[in-house]
Design a protein around this nucleic acid. Structure first.
Lengths: 102, 102
DNA sequence: CTTTCATATTGACAAACGTCGATACATAGC
DNA sequence: GCTATGTATCGACGTTTGTCAATATGAAAG
């Protein structure tokens, strides 16, 4: 995943593309289920996809879909271990977002 | 607008309500037009609603709708001056968001 | 009070989104 | 190879979202 626009949001108007990219990443975060996923994984250091349907009360396809979006946005990183998929939170990515917002 | 959940996102799993509230605020930010609004207003220090339709290439009702969402989320503050509506960015609100994310 | 102009609200529409059941794919073990 | 199991994809559905034209509201000026 490429870096976010590096200029802080507050210093000069965003151009169309930067706004599009930043909105995409924020949109990935702007969902209660995905926020819970991130917080669960962060709290544990890592998390297995197999545990999330029960923890979230969502079906496996739904969880898989949310995980994909978070990975695509660079917020989660995925690692395959045997048949299981493990995820970690990219603190760097979150820091990037904060750097843009403040 | 009330404060966001104060625990950083990364230390313990969010409960349903906190996830809902935080997602709502992030959703307000997760749109290219609204991000441009925020960046324009921040860059100028303040901004008049009358200028945004032209700056954004959107109709007046559309801009009004986006401004409402940003105000509802506590990201913009609105001040009436005669017949004009002026907006400023709540840096505190953005700082709150960053505090939760990092 | 009437007119004018800035902003908000309404109603409608297409596009995007979250969700699920069913199914396909992939990996490990037999 | 076949089977079992974890994960991803597909198709469909109802809901939410962004957008606009039309209209209503609000505030100043004449």
């Amino acid at each position: 995943m490429d870096m976010l626009c590096c200029e802080p949001l507050l210093t000069k108007p965003l151009d169309d593309e930067a706004a599009q990219v930043l909105a995409g990443v924020l949109k990935a975060l702007a969902d209660p289920v995905r926020l819970k996923l991130v917080s669960i994984i962060a709290a544990q250091g890592e998390g297995c996809a197999c545990d999330f349907p029960e923890l979230l009360g969502k079906t496996q396809p739904t969880v898989s879909h949310h995980l994909s979006q978070l990975v695509a946005a660079g917020i989660l990183e995925r690692e395959q271990r045997g048949k299981w998929a493990w995820f970690t939170v990219s603190q760097d990515r979150l820091a990037e977002i904060c750097a843009v917002l403040c």
